[in-house]
Amino acid sequence: MLPRRFNLHRPDRIEDAVALLAEHGDDASPYAGGTELLIAMKARVLSYAHIVDLKGIAALRGVSARSDGGLIIGALTTHHELANHSLVLERLPAYALLSANVANIRVRAAGTLGGNLCFAEPHADPPAMLCALNAELVLAGPGGERRMLLAEFILGELSTARATGEVLVRIEVPGLPAGTRAGYRAFGHLERPAVGVAAVALPLGKGFDWRLRVGSICGRPTALAGLEKAMRGLPEADALAVLAEGAEQAAAAVEADDDIRGSAEYKRHLVGVLARRAARAALGMEALAA
């Protein structure tokens, strides 16, 4: 089915996009790769009188280095670009691999990281890993720019802290200490993950400071905080033993929704399995890509 009729705006500057979005308010939507928005507009679940296409804004594209060793990712950068970008492959190989496994090649070629985060469909791969990496967002609005943590930006299913008139400009991943490891494991019967778990391990003493974040299980990424604490600073083998012992119990306490991707019980089971696999992948004990 065709979407309902709309006016297509194609600003080439961020300020012009912000002005258009502010002027039309709830009658307008920013438009990036369209892999989520167009599907919903075709189903007429969503409709807008004004579509503000951001793809012509050069300032929203590209990947560059942060001086602290991190990355600056333009919001309109596609998953395909992230999967193949030399800086991402060098600084965050686990994230490049996650990008290479998003949905299918057509979604990766069109879909943008910014669009993915702003649409806030929980069954997506990037949020859990980016939350574990403490990613920050820069948003531009009528009053200027503001910065916030991705973990605070995602409020729930299809809901973010992006205000009317705001445009996500870039995603910044802070530099990580040398020796930091990361891994991601997801599982689903369809293209979207039913559940994904990101494990990031920052060197600490004889072990690591672990960040274990579960994606897709409910409206927003969730930390396995008890496990993170119990594994903190332990040598690898001990940390993995704590994880193997405690994963199931930790998973049982995670907020989980029943949906088309599986029951809450099934997803909690996956958390236990995937947390162990993600941690092992981070430590190089199994291949980064499943």
Binding site: L8, G34, T35, L38, I39, K42, D53, K55, H80, N104, I105, R106, V107, A109, A110, L190, E191
Partner: peptide, 25 residues
């Protein structure tokens, strides 16, 4: 829905789902 690939065409050499791509793009 952009899932099956039967509508695949290449745009600048990369596959896209033509069923879920605006011609304007």
């Amino acid at each position: 829905l952009g899932v099956c690939g039967a509508c695949t065409v290449l745009v600048d050499g990369l596959p896209v789902s033509s069923c879920s791509t605006l011609a304007a793009d």
